[in-house]
């Protein structure tokens, strides 16, 4: 059973994360987390004829590895929650086309890992089902041609622009199992502070992240020091600075804070502008870095706050500002 207080769902029988895996691309293999990926596929085409199919191939690979690590088969999964950055969420749909499983497609832009994990945990934690899987991915090349320009186009990136991560992450949530556990989840509110620059998405998402974090602390009565670490999804250099400034105005400081977009690449050496972004960014850091540390007990309590910028190329060209969203998951090594 679970209890909703304010915006946050607290689980009484905390669902367990029994399997998780991430598969990354070439640029990720050159970053600081390279060693921690389950698998690196340097050929970002994955032998397919287009980038869209390649992204689905990354997802398939992540699903297989997560199932293996959980020691189960696809038949044991009751629900699959999946999302990606492609139009109409097709990378996930085409992955699941080949998997016979009940499927709900999600679009939360870069926040999808926390969104899918929240929903999977809620389904399992409330006793609806025994096992659910959360799956997300992004692919630099597929995202670039959808949201920006063709890959061969000679454009100079502004210093605030972020680099879409090529990676897929899959998490199996089960009713029974060991650490890590999902203790609580907070689905976010949309916040839009009028940022229209598509090359400064960290700034567009920071207020939403602040809102969700503040609401969680209010609901749970906890403080930042109660956590070994607090991770945001892909705010990058600009967004993570802004998040800390907003929280400081609200009287909250985060002493143990990192952004996944800043962790996955060596920002200056790899020439990625303000850091990494995309659903694959938070998914990869969660599965490669955060969950193993919680599982082994190095970290006991972490907050994982994935952020998303919910615009499309059409709304951008129509001059609309960018709505931001952030979802929070509290992951713990104890029940």
């Amino acid at each position: 059973m679970s209890l909703k207080k304010g915006d946050t769902i607290f689980f009484e029988n905390c669902p367990s994360i029994t399997g998780f895996a991430t598969v990354g691309g070439k640029k990720e293999s050159e970053g600081p987390l390279a060693e921690e990926f389950d698998c690196i596929c340097v050929d970002t085409r994955m032998g397919e004829e287009c980038w869209e199919k390649a992204e689905s191939a990354y997802q398939r690979s992540a699903v297989e590895k997560a199932l293996n690590k959980a020691g189960i088969t696809l038949g044991d999964i009751d629900y699959l929650f999946a999302g990606d950055l492609q139009n109409q969420c097709t990378a996930s749909a085409y992955t699941v086309r080949d998997l016979d499983v009940q499927f709900a497609g999600l679009y939360g832009a870069c926040s999808t890992m926390a969104e899918s994990l929240s929903l999977a945990s809620s389904f399992v934690g409330s006793g609806i089902c025994n096992r659910a899987m959360a799956l997300t991915s992004s692919h630099f090349c597929a995202a670039e041609r959808t949201f920006r320009t063709p890959l061969e186009y000679g454009g100079q990136r502004t210093p605030t622009a972020q680099w879409t991560v090529t990676a897929a992450g899959a998490v199996v949530v089960s009713a029974q199992g060991g650490a890590p556990y999902v203790k609580s989840v907070t689905l976010g509110h949309i916040r839009d502070f009028g940022i229209i620059d598509i090359n400064n998405m960290g700034a567009a998402m920071a207020p939403a992240a602040a809102e969700t974090i503040l609401r969680y602390f209010a609901d749970s009565g906890k403080k930042p020091i109660d956590f070994d670490h607090i991770y945001t999804g892909d705010l990058g250099l600009v967004g993570s600075t802004l998040l800390q400034e907003i929280l400081k105005q609200e009287g909250v400081t985060l002493p143990n804070y990192s952004d996944c977009g800043m962790l996955i690449y060596d920002r200056l050496r790899q020439d990625v502008g303000a850091g990494g972004s995309g659903c694959g960014c938070s998914a990869a850091v969660l599965c490669a870095h955060i969950l193993p540390e919680v599982q082994s007990g190095v970290m006991k309590n972490v907050l994982f706050v994935a952020t998303g910028a919910l615009m499309s190329p059409v709304t951008f060209m129509q001059g609309e500002s960018i709505p931001g969203i952030a979802h929070l998951v509290h992951i713990s090594s104890q029940k």
């Binding site: 691309g25 070439k26 890959l151 061969e152």
Partner: peptide, 8 residues
């Protein structure tokens, strides 16, 4: 003759 290539 060409093919789209990853930038990374």
């Amino acid at each position: 003759f060409g093919q789209s290539k990853d930038q990374s």
